[in-house]
Design a protein around this nucleic acid. Structure first.
Lengths: 156, 156
DNA sequence: AGTATTTAGTTAGCCGGCTAACTAAATGCG
DNA sequence: CGCATTTAGTTAGCCGGCTAACTAAATACT
């Protein structure tokens, strides 16, 4: 509290917080994935939409937003671009005229394997030098921290 | 390859990768910090500029970019906004007419403690239920992973 | 049935990020 | 000295995010 240093504020500087390192790690991870994805004409973040559709095709816009943990306007814009790239297709839902369903095109489906390889490559780089126990521990800690931070993640 | 499941691609789905959880955790952390920072008129990300200046005032634009791990145009725009908010001040560097130094205003300096409290609050929420050993382990794993992913972090 | 309310998406506009292309000043070098 | 090169920032424009405000369709309710 009344220590010799004056550039801290009670606890310790933001730069030394775990959350700070977390943010930097995430930034680096995103950059690495993004660099690989660019080879397929994808921007980082867009692959998440595809991930959801690979898991379940024909989702409605709102469902997509919910699963991505993203707001509807974000989905609107991303779908417009993905549709422009020919990876995805919007079909009006006959049972609800203000809704639509998002379907993968063949091009969109074809990206599943290469995108998974991109993620796998970065995953391996990230965990290099960690043994199985460390990897498991890291994974479990992240899951716990996620349930602490993400309200949508409580019902898991 | 010729496995029974067709919705995976050799290893396991992206959704089950550690990097995926990492991204979600980071997103949640960012959202939480952002919500608190909004109370001080700050957008999440801007506080990082202030963090660097609290640590060392009078940095040049390029140094700021380097320390933040961000490209120069990003700094240009952020500084324009922070200057507009009166948190920061740009003074031309007399020894180099194409450069300038960024200085905190009193308002900018005054935010150090409240912003640190925001971060501390989210830090505590994030690590809730973890004992000291787990927190240390999490921190150390993140640091290792960071050095694996971030080229600028090797020289530590 | 007819109106009020809720729900689904869109538009506009802001912010933090990026790349590409540019200006202008400092430095290197013949 | 004078020109070429490097370095520092800016501008323009794209993308993933967000909020606020809107349209239009479905549902609820009197």
């Amino acid at each position: 509290m009344s220590g010799a240093r004056t550039d801290t504020v009670g606890t310790y500087p933001i730069k030394e917080k775990t959350g700070f390192t977390l943010a930097k790690v995430c930034k680096a991870h995103r950059a690495r994935v993004g660099a690989l994805l660019a080879g397929y004409g994808l921007h980082v973040g867009q692959e998440m939409v595809l991930v959801e559709l690979w898991h379940e095709d024909g989702l409605r816009g709102g469902e997509l937003a919910g699963r991505l943990g993203v707001e509807p306007p974000t989905v609107t814009k991303m779908l417009r671009r993905l549709e422009g790239c020919g990876l995805v297709e919007r079909r009006r839902d006959p049972s609800d005229a203000r809704s639509f369903r998002v379907h993968l095109t063949n091009e969109g489906r074809a990206l599943e394997e290469p995108v998974a390889r991109c993620w796998e490559e970065v995953e391996e780089a990230m965990l290099a030098g960690l043994n199985k126990a460390q990897r498991r521990s890291f994974r479990e800690l992240l899951i716990r921290v996620r349930s602490n931070l993400d309200p949508e993640f409580g019902a898991r």
